[in-house]
Write a protein that binds this DNA or RNA. Sequence first.
DNA 1: TCGACACAATCAAACGATTGATTTAATATA
DNA 2: TATATTAAATCAATCGTTTGATTGTGTCGA
Lengths: 217, 217
Amino acid sequence: MTQPTSSKQKSEPTREALISSALHLFGRQGFDGTSTREISARAGANIAAIAYHFGGKDGLRLACGKAIAAQMTKVLQNGVKTPFASKDQAIRHLENTIEAMARFLLLGARAEDILSFMLREINEDGPVLDGIYQTMIEPKHRELCAAWGGATGTDPESEDTRLAVFSMIGQLLYFRIGKPVILRRMEWETIQRQDADRIVRLLKRNLHAALAAASEE
Amino acid sequence: MTQPTSSKQKSEPTREALISSALHLFGRQGFDGTSTREISARAGANIAAIAYHFGGKDGLRLACGKAIAAQMTKVLQNGVKTPFASKDQAIRHLENTIEAMARFLLLGARAEDILSFMLREINEDGPVLDGIYQTMIEPKHRELCAAWGGATGTDPESEDTRLAVFSMIGQLLYFRIGKPVILRRMEWETIQRQDADRIVRLLKRNLHAALAAASEE
DNA sequence: TCGACACAATCAAACGATTGATTTAATATA
DNA sequence: TATATTAAATCAATCGTTTGATTGTGTCGA
């Protein structure tokens, strides 16, 4: 056994390079579609380094999940206090979250690898998803539910609210998940900044419409 | 060369069994994660049958795509005439489509394999997606855009309309794509009929809200 | 200051197992 | 018999992993 949680020596560069390489390749080609040789070559490391640092290919996969969770919790961290002080503040938080997530998903170059990897792991429904769900998805969803409740005057943890937040996140995520389909249909080659702006505007319009509809019930 | 396009003999049972088996396994484990031995064993056929009937593993993959496209176009076929005669009729068509798709995606047992396979192929963005997109995604999306235009009085093929339809489909699809996540958060074990009803109600509410918001612009 | 040793890290090479594909023979149908 | 299909055996290639040797670095007693 090796692998202390923190860095004792200069093994970090290799570790990080392997994780970065694996994240990229797993996301693009899938776990089974990526060979350990490919990963180590891209990382500029030796094949044996995977077994040495992570115990094997599966260990590297888990490490990728942990790395994502660690990074995203840092990104998603915003000193937000629930419950929200006012209705306007709750709405503004929802708007800001949509905008930030949309830009990250649609324009961020780094997001490509992370998202592809996560989507595969969600579909797989394995131990990697467990970690990602508990450390980032669930806390973030709870936070958004609190905002939704504050914005509509409904119970933040009611089934209806939880589903409504999923529907909001869903239309947002689909613009990234269905990217190949959307690019074809929109006759775009890539998603430019102005395209992302247009999508964000649409999402905000839908948000306000959905909030109004949810408040009336 | 092998590969008879039609059935001269009783080769159909083997063909269909192989496609069904491959669809199931490709969807669950991915293309690279599934071996030809596994496919043929599940189909009750010999390994060589894959090469004989489809030319190889890749050919079987393409055949799966074609089989899906063929089946779905039959399912999605509804003698709908565009442009729609009235605004109400257009709205009703959108409602019916949402309801039918949601029930198929959330409750249909057969949908599981098909959807998982398709999602992987969308992410892969290869030749299989080409076929599926042209024969079912694009025509269906055009039809929904026509309905959306009829319901809001806007241009059916404007960028805004096309994106709005995607956002509608997106929140619908996410309830299937993000199923593992949603089940965790909702503390459900599976999606029951009553759960699907609740989701459909929410989606319809969001639809009307989005239509109203789109009409005002 | 020094050689001797310990230890983490990396390397090239090779391991057995499994992959998709192919070949050859047997079987069923008409 | 002629043809279409299935079955068993085998192929080279690639898979993830393991091996034994080597490197660089820090720690010791003398």
